[in-house]
Design a protein around this nucleic acid. Structure first.
Lengths: 210, 210
DNA sequence: GATGTTTGACCGAACGTTCGTTCGATACGA
DNA sequence: TCGTATCGAACGAACGTTCGGTCAAACATC
């Protein structure tokens, strides 16, 4: 139970403590405000100790990104009911912040905002870009598999699974981007919008009209 | 003609030169690599001269963002044919990079990538966030107006214009985000995907099936 | 079991660089 | 002569990183 959460309990070693500290420092100060000093302070270590565990800032950030994306992936794998439509909705929910957070941890919206900050670094950082490309491909494949399953079960229309999955993921990331960079609160409305898309494009009609 | 481009010809005064230099420095070094020194170098001015024209970095960036978003808006206003479906496609194209660039200026994809970098700053910068919120609202309103026009003309289905516009803009920004942060080139495929969405959700069917 | 050696985690202090910003001076047009 | 535009030089702060050294646990040797 507690094992399902990424940063529950006390850190076991300094390596994990630094990872956790990076996470917290990112939430508190943002990517631009992230410094070795801040991470060291958050982890109750000295700056020099940090360099004993990591080659430098770039090394840390790449490790952190890798760890985080795998953690996302791991949580997603836990949720599967066999019902494609339900699983698809669950998957969308998770991407939009419906995941549990440990006590004292930041809110889901803050985590998604940090995701946007990290993703934007991929514009200039080739290693980041490679990681996000891979993650996007995995997510798309997972959505496509659910769509295909739904088509075989006769509950989804006969759409192109890969193309539909790509389109859906794009929209979901658009929602995340907008929600993290706007003052109004577009998320609830956009949740219903993507639900509408599912109903009109994906689900076969229940009644006989159109 | 040349007046339609944002940075054509020689800058008229130092203020404009700094704006232009900010634009170029952003393309070359990215947001994280943006410094007063770089801007001054690009504008052939000294750092101290910069402070004669702007209060500081934050002042400049806000002015630059304001100027840039208005420039986007201005280009969009030029294109209107009266045909809602065509105008909508033109609008989408512009948002995805189908705009002219002056000689020696960066490519459209680089400009969109810089847009993503700037937008990500809105996560932490309230002034940025306010500006992007406003721009999103304007864009949504413009799309909604086109959709409403299309419904009245009988070429679009009777959808909710506001909601449809919001959903479309979200997807477009998702496309921009993904294209700027991935190694593969999802833009062409996503262009056809949003065209498919228009055909199946928006346009009334030409033939008589469903 | 006592003793010398090695190893790994840790730290304080410092280094060199870059950053945003300020200040005083100079040149020039009105 | 007053205001405006420009400049070089410098400032303090923060950054990522390195270095020399401490301490305790693990290990090897006798």
């Amino acid at each position: 139970m507690t094992d399902a959460l990424p940063f529950a309990g006390e850190p076991e070693d300094s390596h994990e403590a630094i990872m956790r500290a990076t996470f917290c420092a990112l939430q508190e100060h943002g990517y631009a405000g992230l410094s070795i000093q801040r991470i060291a302070d958050e982890a109750d270590l000295s700056k020099s100790t940090f360099y004993h565990h990591f080659d430098g800032k770039e090394d840390l950030l790449l490790s952190f990104l890798e760890f985080t994306l795998e953690e996302f992936d791991r949580v997603f794998k836990l949720e599967s009911s066999g019902d494609p439509a339900k699983d698809l909705r669950t998957f969308f929910g998770l991407l939009l912040g419906d995941f549990p957070t440990a006590g004292g941890m930041p809110e889901q919206e803050d985590i998604l905002a940090t995701y946007v900050e990290l993703r934007a670094q991929a514009v200039r950082n080739p290693d980041f870009r490679a990681k996000f490309t891979e993650t996007d491909r995995e997510f798309t494949a997972r959505i496509a598999a659910l769509v295909e399953e739904g088509i075989e079960d006769g509950v989804f229309r006969d759409v192109d699974p890969e193309r539909t999955a790509q389109f859906l993921l794009t929209t979901l990331e658009g929602i995340t981007l907008q929600n993290a960079t706007r003052d109004d609160n577009p998320l609830p409305e956009l949740r219903t919008a993507i639900e509408s898309y599912m109903e009109s494009e994906l689900l076969v009609a229940d009644s006989a009209d159109s």
